[in-house]
Design a protein around this nucleic acid. Sequence first.
DNA 1: GACCCCCCTTACAAAAAGGTAAGTACCGCA
DNA 2: TGCGGTACTTACCTTTTTGTAAGGGGGGTC
Lengths: 123, 123
Amino acid sequence: MAKAPRCGPYICGIDAALDVVSGKWKGLILWELDAHGVRRFAELRRGLPGVSEKMLTQHLREMEKDGLVHREVYAEVPPRVEYSLTEHGHTLNQALAPLGAWGSERTRREGLEVVDVAETSHG
Amino acid sequence: MAKAPRCGPYICGIDAALDVVSGKWKGLILWELDAHGVRRFAELRRGLPGVSEKMLTQHLREMEKDGLVHREVYAEVPPRVEYSLTEHGHTLNQALAPLGAWGSERTRREGLEVVDVAETSHG
DNA sequence: GACCCCCCTTACAAAAAGGTAAGTACCGCA
DNA sequence: TGCGGTACTTACCTTTTTGTAAGGGGGGTC
């Protein structure tokens, strides 16, 4: 099981928000989904360098449970599943924007390594 | 050892920022330090319900290394150490504000449990 | 018919994070 | 001398998180 006992007592809002985005790939999933609108499982997988299928599924399920991600399953012959952000997912992403800006400045300031996923080259 | 190999390649700013605040008590430490300006070790400990000395020291050291927290040691007979936010710590806190608001709304929206640390009762 | 793709699931294992308890060194108080 | 308070450090252990490898059911391709 992944993380059943969420909803633990929170001390402040940051605590409650961090609980939802903490996870190695959650921030990136949010980012991908925000950038592309709708994404299929395999697309997401390709957009997140190094993620395993297990982790991706797990994170996606948790985010769905947390009401951030919408999962649309098409009962087609080659199974098709589309993921997108819910309204809460969008507002979270907006709330995350200043943090992202701060982080970008940090990487610049400290000369940290940043990899480019080259999402634009296939999307 | 706590976390030496930070500075890993980041995909986006959120990634880089999350790396710095991920940790069970980091958000709270930022919050405490922002609310009180300057805080001693034991004060911080009392303000963070359930934190162990080890974790507090460890998180504080990491945050110091990340340039978020300033540590001032007074060479006095009963050792005195004061912690405060650096400028980067302050800007991070400001960047965290919308996230905190989002989290607060989430706790309200979903009726999640929130504990009150009652910091005001002793400060 | 073997292989690949789709979207997962399961079992197992490693790594990381966190927690517990004790020890350090010094002081004031009783 | 024993206890409480200051700010940690260290060793050990548990829990949580992440990773690896494999399987599964169906269809199209070579």
